[in-house]
């Protein structure tokens, strides 16, 4: 299989994630879209490692780091979602427009 299949798949996932980050209304939806983008990055790294740009081991170790950072990001993001709901009593991001609630 050529590497183009995997790369095109990664591009489509990345674009779906960008669309979701901008167009979603709830904070948890935005977090899911950010995870989509990170997964597209993982797919690209593994593909480029297999098809001879960086070494295979290095690409897999970097993907491990990205997965760990994604877990951290989700934990902090969900805590923020809880705090925002507790302060504003609503979860629509387009209606939360003031700082220092």
């Amino acid at each position: 299989m050529s590497s183009y299949y995997y790369l095109i798949l990664g591009v489509v996932i990345f674009i779906l994630g960008i669309y979701g980050i901008i167009a979603r209304r709830t904070l948890i939806g935005v977090l899911i879209s950010a995870e989509l983008i990170l997964n597209a990055a993982n797919l690209n790294l593994l593909t480029l490692g297999r098809f001879g740009f960086i070494s295979v081991r290095q690409s897999q170790v970097i993907v491990l780091f990205i997965i760990a950072l994604a877990a951290c990001e989700t934990a902090v993001g969900l805590a923020l979602a809880l705090a925002i709901y507790r302060i504003f009593k609503k979860s629509d991001l387009t209606q939360i427009s003031e700082l220092k609630g």
Binding site: Y19, A23, R25, T26, L82
Partner: peptide
């Protein structure tokens, strides 16, 4: 489960798909 009520809004309009 912890958030009692999540509003189920759809996405914003088609204009927001232009960056993608």
């Amino acid at each position: 489960m912890l958030i009692p009520r999540v509003e189920e809004g759809g996405n914003r309009g088609w204009l927001y798909s232009l960056p993608a």
